[in-house]
């Protein structure tokens, strides 16, 4: 790999293995480089380890002490497994499968939660600016600007998910991890979020786990195909969907298993 591409790497998996039970790896020796300002889709049948890999990046696995992660994961060259998890999670924001706005907080408070919960007190003007910018980024501003003090849980599912994306964006992460963010949404809400992700590409790098192959084809620049914990194939989305190297990838993409 030449130096220029090397500079372009924001997220690096180096021989990453993750296990839920000792001796059984749910993710096996994954090595991959994710390029800056790209959208990378992780695909594969249920149980192939794609969410597990994604959640390792912002160290969500630490909630569950029986999960062990080995290998190296680098964001901007920093080994995140050796960094304070709080710092890691500021670099890598996460959006979950089901929208999960904080039920006790208003829309405004939800967007700014990354600051307020961490005890960072910004001046009101600055907070207003962040809230407006993030809500505009996710295309929610015009819909909610008159009801910023309403609870976030009053919004529709698609709006809630966009609110959650805004909440993650507010901390200006380098990487946005998305774990099947549209699987709980209807097609219209899904479309809006897909458009939004493509628009966000110049601000950050997105890694998205998806079950939806056409979604991966529509929005991603690069695709990973995982099967039984192995990273089978990792290439540009175009190459993968037109001319995959591995027979398993081809079969999966053609709907023959999974």
């Amino acid at each position: 790999m030449d130096a220029e591409t090397q500079n372009n790497i924001i997220l690096k998996f180096d021989d990453v293995s993750i296990s839920y039970t000792p001796g059984v790896n749910a993710v096996k020796n994954v090595t991959a480089d994710i390029r800056k300002n790209s959208i990378t889709a992780i695909m594969g049948p249920s149980g192939c380890g794609k969410s597990t890999l994604l959640r390792a990046v912002n160290r969500m696995h630490e909630l569950y002490p029986h999960i062990t992660t080995t290998g190296k994961i680098l964001i901007n060259g920093i080994d995140i497994l050796k960094t304070d998890p709080i710092k890691v999670r500021r670099m890598a924001g996460m959006v979950f499968q089901r929208p999960n706005p904080f039920p006790t907080m208003s829309i405004y408070q939800n967007v700014i939660a990354g600051y307020s919960l961490n005890g960072i007190n910004l001046p009101k003007q600055e907070k207003d600016a962040i809230v407006e910018e993030c809500l505009r980024n996710v295309g929610l501003w015009d819909e909610v600007k008159d009801s910023l003090n309403k609870k976030g849980t009053f919004l529709s599912g698609g709006q809630q998910q966009r609110l959650c994306i805004a909440r993650a964006l507010a901390l200006k992460p380098d990487v946005l991890l998305m774990d099947e963010p549209t699987s709980a949404l209807d097609p219209i809400a899904t479309n809006r979020i897909e458009d939004l992700l493509v628009g966000l590409k110049d601000q950050l790098t997105i890694v998205i786990v998806t079950h939806n192959m056409s979604q991966a084809a529509r929005i991603s620049d690069y695709s990973m195909f995982m099967y039984l914990g192995d990273l089978v194939e990792f290439d540009s989305t175009q190459k993968m969907f037109t001319n995959p190297n591995d027979k398993r990838t081809e079969e999966y993409l053609n709907g023959r298993f999974g």
């Binding site: 969500m60 999670r89 996460m94 999960n100 961490n118």
Partner: peptide, 10 residues
């Protein structure tokens, strides 16, 4: 809910 909080670096 807990994961959302932790994911924000809380």
């Amino acid at each position: 809910l807990k994961e959302a909080g932790l994911a924000l670096g809380c």
